[in-house]
């Protein structure tokens, strides 16, 4: 589905991505975590075709990404700037469907179905700004769902909502994934979230970012906000990811005990991992 090889990107003299390698299989839900400012968004924008990386290759469904791939949707962090405030919720959801063909009625039905999937059929006639932040993000998710992409990218989708809403939205993503079987790449800085939601957690180092950890999450399904988070595997995985994000060597006692961690060889001799040599990450310039 998605193949990234040796992806690098620099903003002028500042290198954001330092050779990222990542493969995502069809139907996987991969969470990408990393310290803030590490180039997660740069990675996502390169996959999404919104940014032309300075080096390396991105293949989506076997085709190199030059512009935004047809079968791809993005859910942005800032819902208030990605939903159009001058359109109703239903219009926001159905606008992209014109590209998929079909008449107005079929577009409207598709939009309604998507809104029902996210639990907001009653909001169809409202404007986005009449809804709470969490509901707006649901609308953004509905828009992506209605579009029926093969690959959905989510950029810190729950970064701007309160904790309770965040949990609801995490469960919504899990449910969407179950019912649609879509491939999802979710970017977050929240370690708990990545473990709770993901099939796999990919950890990026500080910039220039490289993949320093790739862990398979094997937690009992269906996941549950209380039970899953109490599960010993969850606790260990969380600690493991936390150490990787902070740039410490993995393989401490916790990881050894669980054995849940898999792709640790990737970071074995990466100099970035040594906290002594790691430089503080400069803030990525937002062009």
């Amino acid at each position: 589905m998605l193949e990234i090889s040796d992806l690098t990107h620099s903003y002028g003299a500042y290198q954001a991505l330092g050779g990222v390698n990542l493969t995502v299989a069809e139907g996987e839900l991969v969470c990408v975590v990393g310290p803030s400012g590490c180039g997660k968004s740069t990675l996502l924008r390169s996959i999404g075709g919104l940014l032309r990386p300075t080096g390396g290759r991105v293949l989506v469904q076997g085709r190199p990404v030059e512009k935004v791939p047809d079968d791809l949707a993005i859910v942005f962090q800032d819902y208030s700037r990605s939903l159009f405030p001058w359109m109703t919720v239903a219009d926001n959801v159905s606008l992209p469907l014109r590209r998929r063909g079909g008449d107005r009625r079929s577009r409207d039905t598709a939009a309604m179905e998507a809104l029902e999937q996210v639990g907001l059929p009653a909001a169809a006639g409202k404007y986005p700004w009449e809804l709470s932040g969490g509901m707006q993000q649901r609308v953004a998710i509905a828009r992506a769902l209605a579009y029926k992409p093969a690959l959905m990218l989510m950029d810190e989708p729950f970064g701007s909502v309160d904790a309770q809403t965040r949990e609801d939205l995490e469960d919504l993503v899990l449910q969407v994934r179950r019912s649609s079987g879509m491939t999802i790449v979710l970017i977050t800085h929240d370690i708990d979230e990545s473990v709770y939601v993901g099939d796999r957690v990919v950890v990026l180092s500080k910039s220039p970012a490289t993949v320093v950890g790739d862990l398979r999450v094997e937690l009992p399904e269906p996941r549950d906000q209380i039970a899953t988070r109490e599960h010993p595997d969850f606790v260990h995985l969380r600690a493991e990811v936390g150490r990787l994000v902070r740039g410490m060597r993995s393989g401490g006692p916790a990881a050894a005990e669980t054995g849940a961690e898999t792709g640790a060889e990737a970071e074995a001799d990466s100099p970035e991992l040594d906290p002594a040599t790691a430089e503080p990450a400069p803030v990525a310039p937002k062009a």
Binding site: G48, G49, L50, K67, V68, D70, L72, A73, I74, F76, D78, R81, S82, F84, W86, M87, L95, P96, R98, R99, R143, Y147
Partner: peptide, 24 residues
């Protein structure tokens, strides 16, 4: 981000102009 949203969802140039840029 409005424009990026258009790009992501493949909204046509005409519609981008009339439904997004003009209202914005």
């Amino acid at each position: 981000q409005y424009l990026e949203t258009c790009e992501v969802f493949g909204i046509s140039r005409f519609r981008r102009l009339t439904r997004v840029i003009l209202p914005a």
